[in-house]
Every structure is written in C-alpha cells, then in structure tokens.
Design a binder for these strands. Structure first.
Length: 652
DNA sequence: GGCATACAGATTTTT
DNA sequence: TCTGTATGCC
C-alpha cells in the first residue's frame, strides 16, 4: 500500500502525542490501519497493548475487518478496537470492586432515563416532555463536566437550578439503587476512577501503551478527559480528526478539543493530510470555498490531483414534488444511458422528513432506492418489551424493565396497583420485584391483584432459573410463554405493523443465536453480556447484502453520510430555513450547518447537484423560501444555476 | 383497563 | 399535516 509524504509521517510517528488533521477523503482510515500495523511490526508495540477507539460500532467493526487483511487473526483479535463506551464498560467491569455497583448492572438508554426522571419529578414537570428532556440534557452535561450532585447543589443559585440539581441527586441515587448506569457513566466513572486511583491508573496505562482515536473532533469533554487519563504519563497516542467535519456539537461534542490538545500536550506533533483522493478539483474547490467562511485556528486546504471535472449544477424547482421529479428524471436518464448505475447516486438531506416526497416520487418512477435505516430497531416496542424481560432476568431490581412489562401482555395490573407498590417500596427501600413478595402488601392491595402479582413474579422466577441455557432459547421461551405474538395481534391491529414487529422479533432471535463468545468455540455469550451489548447498540451488521440487490439509489441524512462517498451526490432542500436550518439561524449556529454542507459536498467524487425549491410545505403550511446562503458561498464560476432569472433575483 | 379524543410539537441521533 | 402522547370517559 503506497502512502504519500504526510501519510508516511503520520504512520511513522509512534512516540509522543500525535494529532492527524485529516481532511475529507485524505485516506484517514488507511493511515490508521497502516499505523497499527507499523506499531506492531516496527514499533515494538504488542498487539494487546494497542487500543483503537471509535465512536460507532460500525467504525470499530470496519477497522477490525480492514486490519484483519494485514495482520494474522490472533494479532487482530488482541488489539482492543472498540467504541468509547465499550472501552469504558470494559474498565468498569474490570474494576467493579472499586465501584459501588454490582457486576450485573443494567444500562439505561435515553428512554429509560426519561421514564426514571418522570418518576422523580413533580407532576407539572412529569407531563412536560420538553422540560424532561432539558433536565436529562442538563444532567448529562453535569456528568460530562464531572460535577457531582453535591457540587451542583452547592453551586445552585436560582430556584430552577436548585430544582434541577435536586433531581440530579435523586436521579443518581435511583440509578444506584436500581444497580443501573447510564451512557454518560460509562465514560465518566472510569475516568474518575483513573483520576483518583493510582493503582488502577497504573494498571490501565500498562495495559494500553498506545492509543488511537478516530473522529477526534466528535469527542466531548469527558471523553477528552478519558483519553488524557489513559495516556497521561507516556502520551503515546494518535488522534485523528477533522474540525471541519464536526457535526455533532448538539450532542455535546466539543470541536475545540482539537485545540485544547496543543495546550495540554506542548510537544504535540500535528500532521496535516490535505491531499484528497476522492473528489474532482472543482468539487474540492467548492468545498474549500464554502468552509473558508468558518473560523479556523488551524488552516487546512484540500487539494486534488484528479480531473477538474464537471460543473456543479443547481437545480431549481417550483416545489418539493417537482424537485424530486427532476432528480428522478436525471438519475433515470443517466442510468438508462448505462453511464452509471443506481448505486452510484446518493440523495442527501438535512432531516429525515425530507425523504417522504422523494420516496413517493422514486416509487412512481420505478427507481430502486435504499433508505439508510437509523437505529430505530431498538426503540421498537416489541424489542424494548422483550429486552425488558431479559433485563429483569439478569437484574430483578431493574424497576424500569419491570414497570414496562408487568402488564405486557395485559395481566390486569394497572397503574393504581403499581403506584401502591411504588409508594411502599420508597418507604422500604426495596425494588419492586422484591416488594411484591412481602406480606405487608396484602394490607393495601386486594387479594385478586396480589395473586396476579405473584403469578407474574413466579413467571419471571421461572425464567431466572433458566439463566444457564442459551440466551436465544430463553427468549424463545419467553415469547412462547407469554404468548407475545397473540398480544401483538391484539394490541397493534394494523397487519402491516404486526408483520414488521414479528420480523423484528425474528431478527432479534436470530441475532441472539449468532452471539457466540469470541474466545471459546461455539460457546454462547452470557445473557448479561448480550443485554449490555444490545444497549450499546453493538449490533454487528455484516454487509451480507447481495451485490445484485444492492443497486439502489442511496437516500440518507447529511449526518448519516459522513465517512461515505458516491460518484454523484444530490443535496436537496438547499434553502434558508432547511439548510441552514431555521433553529440554527435563530441560535446563530451557522458554522455547524456550514460544516454539514461541507460534509455533503465532500461526499461527491465526480458530480455534484444542489437542488433548491421555491415553495416548501412545512407543518402543513406553504412557505416561500430563498436559496441557501451557502449556495452563494460557492465559487460561482464553477456553478451552473439552472435558470438565470432565479440567480438574478436572489443574487446579493 | 381500554378506547376515543384533544393537543402539542415537529433537526440531526455515534452509545 | 402528521404523529405520538396525555387525558377523560365508559
């Protein structure tokens, strides 16, 4: 594999802190892979002492797959390639004795968090989902700043702050009582542990002697601290990132972490990779021109040695339907000339809602398409229900799971009964599961209901007793015993929804079957491990799609397109209010929208289209729009606006 | 407890 | 406009 000068430098710098500023399409992954191989072959690093951290399971999986082509199986397996959260989890599991949690803890996802908050808050807050989300965001923010509830409480001035900090304290106490952790804990707990415990820190710094981090621009504060703690003494690390592709600040990512590094590690070496191997010169020029409107502390200019390429076109349509039709026609014409295949096209948009009209038109025009599915799988009711059953089995104290399924399928145990038990448990400091067996309850709940409750507990106990058999068998038994399919028919009614649910359940079951412990042949993974991995969305989506039925136009959000490339890209909805989004205009957060546009542009290899439509329908109301400001930030000499009249009208 | 109706809210979504 | 959720009635 041949590398250019910058890439070689990046690979060969194997001592001390190293930051690689890797522009879009500059061969970032290639460098990471080569570097790991180099570390082992020439750097005297042992494979088991190298850790590579990514943000997504997909990225981790891809990295491992690509590495396996350069290293033998054993070495590839030894390298710790994981997401931030999985690495955090690994440390927590390993150091569980130093933490106050039990080993069989449950992981709370966002929905679990919200339902826990609902329990804690007063009535008005409970019914205000916006406020609940605000509180959950605030708690997450505090955790990521390593502010303990005590600290936040002592600092709180206003009544609102006091109220929020109270909830934070209660929230954390509840999590502890339920033997549960949230996603933030997976990063923050190990970081605090490393900070405060020299022995543990020493253990992990000996274990991980070289650390690589991908998509560094997406780290938030606690992840940055986590990295620092892991690498403190030797500082042998490589962080790879591109500040221009930071598009997750709304999720807490702090692109400034790139510049903080220089301060925290004065001997930091920065290597810029500016040679783009993906896009035509013209596309790259457009990307550079656009992004130069953002503030930069480290300047970087991408260049390409590929052809200058075709003009960038701006398609103008009257409304969204015409916009979609024009795209469909273009794709159809080009494909029927056999120049390109459907799979060579991507249609990118700001929000998922924009795909609806596209889909409608593409179906009408008989153009095959593929919508990259978001991870909604895990938020489907049927999956959450069944996972809750599994969760209860490994951790009966998991009240959230119990509440979810105690009446699914219907057992005539309603909210009134639950409230009674909850009231009782808060006094007794017990979990719901434990409380149900108490004789005391018979004083406040009628006999019939007590019987139902006990039946439920017996049912769960029966499952718990099975814990040693293969997890997928447990799942199958649950589905069978509770007559879950029957329940689906009863509760969903819509046959399409029922079919989808049943398919999802099948997927889940199949997936459990395939979860095999890595180190020992054919040994199924423990249920507890599976549940954790499920919550971490650690689903290995192997690309088993057949090449033949993969020839489809790709539809996805700009966010989802990061890291991908396509010969031809359409960026739709290029109007003020959509891209940049109205809220970003309002909050003066244009730079991130510009980066999003930049990400979109740099996905294109050969041809780039923007589409703009004059009228859009938003929330059922028609809206006249003006073209996105970003269109005017492109080099106009490289662009063909579809109709000049529009250009003149909107030129500024 | 289940159903119908009212009503708010509506980007992006790595774990 | 559409969707998910809260509420109130049976």
């Amino acid at each position: 594999m041949s590398l250019n000068f910058a890439q070689k430098n990046a690979v060969k710098l194997i001592t001390g802190p190293c930051l690689i500023l890797a522009g879009a399409g500059s061969g970032k992954t290639k460098v990471i892979i080569n570097k790991i191989v180099y570390l082992i072959k020439y750097g005297a690093y042992k494979s088991h002492n190298i850790a590579a951290v990514t943000f997504t399971n997909k990225a981790a999986y891809e990295m491992r797959t690509r590495l396996s082509k350069h290293l033998n199986i054993l070495k590839t397996k030894n390298i710790n390639i994981s997401t931030f959260h999985s690495l955090g989890l690994k440390i927590i599991k390993h150091e569980i004795k130093s933490l106050r949690f039990h080993d069989n803890f449950t992981l709370f996802d966002e929905k679990d968090q919200i339902s826990l908050l609902k329990k804690i808050c007063n009535k008005e807050t409970k019914n205000n989902i916006t406020l609940l989300k605000k509180i959950s965001f605030q708690i997450s923010f505090w955790k990521n700043q390593f502010y303990t509830p005590e600290k936040v409480k002592s600092l709180a001035k206003s009544a609102v702050e006091k109220y929020f900090s109270d909830i934070y304290e209660k929230y954390n106490t509840c999590l502890y009582e339920l033997n549960s952790l949230d996603f933030d804990d997976l990063i923050c707990l190990p970081t605090t542990l490393l900070k405060e415990n020299k022995e543990i820190k020493n253990r992990w710094q000996t274990k991980i002697t070289y650390l690589l981090v991908d998509e560094y621009q997406d780290t938030n504060n606690s992840q940055y601290e986590f990295i620092k703690e892991l690498t403190n003494t030797q500082s042998n690390f490589t962080l790879v990132g591109d500040d221009d592709q930071s598009i997750y600040s709304w999720r807490g990512a702090n692109p400034n972490n790139i510049f903080l590094l220089k301060k925290d590690f004065p001997n930091l070496k920065i290597i810029k990779m500016e040679h783009n191997y993906r896009s035509s010169g013209r596309i790259l020029k457009a990307a550079n021109s656009l992004i130069s409107n953002n503030m930069h502390s480290l300047k970087k200019t991408l260049f390409s040695q590929l052809q200058y390429g075709k003009f960038i076109q701006i398609i103008i349509a009257e409304n969204e339907e015409k916009e979609a039709e024009k795209i469909a026609k273009k794709i159809f014409l080009q494909c029927s000339k056999k120049k390109l295949q459907y799979q060579d096209y991507a249609i990118l948009y700001r929000g998922n809602y924009q795909s609806r009209i596209l889909e409608k038109v593409l179906i009408k025009e008989n153009i095959p398409y593929n919508i990259s599915e978001n991870s909604s799988f895990f938020s489907c009711v049927e999956i959450k229900d069944l996972l809750s059953y599994l969760r209860i089995i490994i951790n009966p104290n998991d009240n959230a799971a119990l509440i979810r399924i105690i009446n699914i399928p219907s057992r005539k145990i309603g909210s009134i009964t639950l409230k009674k038990i909850e009231k009782y448990t808060t006094k007794q400091k017990k979990s719901l599961f434990d409380a149900i067996n108490d004789i005391e309850l018979e004083k406040i709940i009628n006999k019939k209901t007590i019987k139902k409750l006990k039946d439920f507990i017996d049912l769960i106990q029966e499952f718990i007793d099975l814990a040693d058999i293969a997890p997928y068998k447990i799942l199958d038994k649950i589905i069978h015993d509770i007559e879950y399919e029957k329940w689906l028919y009863k509760s969903l009614k819509d046959p399409k929804k029922i079919q989808k649910s049943i398919n999802n359940i099948y997927t889940l079951s199949e997936w459990l079957k395939n979860m095999i412990q890595g180190d020992e042949l054919e040994k199924p993974m423990s249920l507890s491990k599976i549940i954790t991995r499920m919550t971490l969305r650690d689903i290995v989506t192997k690309n088993t799609k057949k090449q033949s039925d993969n020839n489809k136009v790709q539809l996805m959000t700009l966010h989802a397109s990061k890291g991908l490339e396509f010969p031809t890209v359409f960026m739709i909805g290029m109007c003020e209010g959509v891209l940049p989004n109205q809220k970003s205009i309002h909050n003066n957060n244009i730079e991130e929208e510009r980066r999003l546009t930049y990400v979109g542009i740099t996905r294109a290899k050969k041809q780039l289209f923007f589409t703009y439509c004059c009228k859009i329908i938003q929330y059922g109301k028609m809206l006249y729009t003006s073209p996105s400001r970003f269109l005017f930030e492109l080099p106009q000499e490289d662009i063909k606006w579809e109709k000049n009249i529009f250009k003149n009208n909107f030129d500024r």
